[in-house]
Design a protein around this nucleic acid. Structure first.
Length: 292
DNA sequence: GAGTCGTGGGC
DNA sequence: TGCCCAAGACT
């Protein structure tokens, strides 16, 4: 590794953090509690900020502390999740609340290993909570930061499909030693990736590190690695599950099994999908009726 | 490690 | 219009 890399990183960090001080969004969970951060991180998994704002506020009004959610039945969480998508996140968040209530005296734990042990909390989310909620030092590596780093440092348009061990090592190398600086870098680099260094139509004219960027220096070469496959949707079990779950969600008093199966043209697929929802306990059967 | 798991909006 | 993408986790 060339000797001047460290200097470049420090300069990049300074500029990004300074940019953040002037352009950071006033997102409600940034002036909330650790529990508010937890709720936001679950909701933001694979879901844009714009769609999370409303549901996050509703959840915080209804369940301002982990104990409040823990006292509910899981179906209440799935119902309140609405159309945010990936409803098992609601189920996992409810289970996380119960774990926090039972094992941590109702207080969101601070340490990475304790966070990582919560249902639905992976490597990214644990680091994000530790950093954003507690100001701790953790390698926060999400899709925004991965894209920013691969462009600035390696001159490529997109990172690999899934985060590699090499990426985690490199992200660690970017992390300042002081916890407060590390947390600032995490928030700032993620924000820059989300607002400026975007996947499509990046706004390099607004970027504080454009003149330091390897991707820009290389003339913005297009992605040439393996194709970044989009997820199939039409006709998938996932779409079918979504249709059935939405029907149950809209009928709080319950839906007859036959009616739910009729909501999807392919009978065999409908049966398989409903069985999956029941196995996942996203839907339950009570007296012949499907309920959340 | 590749597959699975929702939903909506921008281009 | 269809495709791509969005603060991933889990198996």
């Amino acid at each position: 590794m060339p000797k001047d890399d460290a200097l470049d990183r420090e300069l990049v960090r300074q500029r990004v953090v300074e940019w953040f001080s002037r352009h950071r969004r006033d997102l409600p969970w940034r002036r909330s509690t650790p529990w508010g951060v937890v709720v936001s991180e679950f909701m933001l998994q694979q879901t844009p900020v714009s769609r999370v704002l409303g549901p996050w506020q509703e959840w915080m009004d209804r369940w301002p502390e982990p104990d409040d959610l823990a006292a509910e039945e899981p179906g209440a969480a799935v119902a309140a999740w609405g159309r945010l998508g990936y409803p098992r996140r609601a189920q996992r968040l409810h289970r996380a609340a119960r774990t926090i209530s039972e094992l941590h005296d109702g207080q969101v734990p601070r340490e990475l290993d304790q966070l990582r042990a919560l249902p639905g909390v992976g490597q990214y989310t644990a680091a994000a909570i530790h950093s954003f909620a507690f100001g701790g030092r953790a390698v926060v590596l999400d899709t925004n930061i991965r894209r920013l780093l691969v462009r600035v440092e390696h001159g490529r348009e997109f990172p690999p499909v899934s985060a590699t061990a090499q990426e985690w090592r490199e992200a660690e190398a970017w992390l300042p030693e002081a916890p407060a600086e590390a947390a600032a870098w995490a928030a700032a680099s993620m924000e820059l990736g989300a607002l400026v260094c975007t996947a499509r139509s990046p706004r390099c004219g607004d970027c504080p590190v454009a003149e330091l960027c390897a991707w820009r220096a290389a003339g913005y070469p297009r992605h040439d690695g393996p194709p970044r496959k989009g997820q199939a949707w039409h006709g998938t079990d996932r779409q079918c599950r979504g249709v059935i779950l939405d029907l149950v969600r809209q009928n709080p008093d319950g839906v007859r099994v036959e009616l739910a199966l009729d909501a999807w043209a392919d009978r065999e697929q409908a049966e398989r999908s409903l069985a999956g929802l029941l196995t996942d306990e996203l839907v339950r059967e009570r007296e012949g009726l499907l309920v959340l």
